[in-house]
């Protein structure tokens, strides 16, 4: 009683309605802000860009930043700022697909591995380890070789490669939830494994899923950039920050700014998702939350 007493005392001194919320940490705030800016850019690009992002304009090649072209133009005369706006769509698409695939497969897999017999759990986890040992980029390149280079193919590959991350984490969480008395009570009340998984395990591991998703998002964005840079990702003419970076490399000495803008965009977006993930983890981590 005593060791927890202080903690409960402190916690319960906070008005009941707000008890579970913790103050926003700086990281969470900044991360959330960056992510919303990226989201806003993507939405904006549907209704407005200063110039058509894919419009080749031979008369305005390699313009320096100006009021007309905020970030300048590339060697085909396309407006860099418009491409960055448009590229944010690709970035988000990439994140959603990769994280979606990984979570959709990884979460049920983790729950099944955690709820099933020890034998089944071990089997699934060893398979998981095998997949984990396979480099994500290599898998994506193989996929691109087989199915042709496209954003979707690349991201499905990245998603598949991230399944183990989800499965492992969720299995750990599931094992913890399965030990609680409320699950034993549900079993004693005659609820089947499916209902227990859906009603007890999933809600109680959902915070883990959210955290892992935001981290996975950052990994996917980075992977897309890398793949596009290598030529296995988003094919032209769809703007992508990674491909902009790749296209800029031949002009690196004459027009370094062409690398700088997409580079900054990638770095900031990844930072944003990582901060968001860390912040969410600090806030939701069941280990930090209640062992009250």
């Amino acid at each position: 009683m005593s060791a927890l007493d202080t903690e409960t005392a402190v916690k319960s001194a906070v008005p009941a309605g707000r008890r579970r919320r913790r103050p926003m940490t700086g990281g969470l705030l900044v991360g959330g802000l960056i992510v919303s800016v990226v989201l806003g850019m993507a939405l904006l690009s549907f209704v407005w860009t200063p110039h058509a992002p894919t419009l080749v304009n031979p008369s305005a090649r390699l313009e320096t930043p100006s009021l007309e072209y905020w970030f300048g133009t590339d060697k085909f005369g396309r407006d860099v700022f418009s491409q960055i706006l448009m590229g944010s769509r690709t970035t988000l698409f990439v994140g959603f697909v990769a994280v979606g695939v990984a979570a959709l497969v990884g979460v049920p897999l983790g729950i099944v591995a955690g709820m099933g017999s020890r034998w089944l759990g071990e089997l699934l986890m060893r398979g998981n380890d095998l997949l984990l040992a396979f480099p994500a980029l290599l898998l994506a390149i193989m996929f691109a070789a087989v199915y042709g280079a496209s954003t979707l193919v690349a991201m499905v590959a990245i998603g598949i490669a991230s399944i183990p991350n989800f499965a492992r984490l969720i299995r750990g969480g599931t094992l913890q939830v399965m030990k609680t008395e409320y699950v034993i009570a549900a079993r004693a009340a005659g609820r089947g494994p499916f209902a227990i998984g859906l009603r007890h395990v999933l809600p109680n591991v959902s915070s883990l899923v959210i955290v892992q998703a935001s981290v996975g998002f950052a990994i996917a964005v980075l992977a897309e950039a890398a793949l596009s840079f290598l030529g296995f990702g988003t094919p032209p003419p769809t703007p992508s920050w990674g491909r902009m970076l790749q296209e800029s490399q031949e002009m690196l000495s004459s027009a370094p700014r062409l690398a700088v803008f997409p580079g900054i965009a990638i770095a900031v977006a990844v930072l944003g998702f990582n901060l968001l993930g860390d912040g969410l983890r600090d806030r939701f981590d069941p280990k930090l939350e209640d062992r009250r």
Partner: peptide, 21 residues
């Protein structure tokens, strides 16, 4: 009982209370 402040009293004598108290 719980919430009576007995443990807080002990910890404050020991100087072991968390800083926000």
């Amino acid at each position: 009982e719980s919430g009576s402040g007995k443990s807080l009293t002990a910890l404050s004598i020991m100087g072991l209370l968390p800083e926000d108290l």
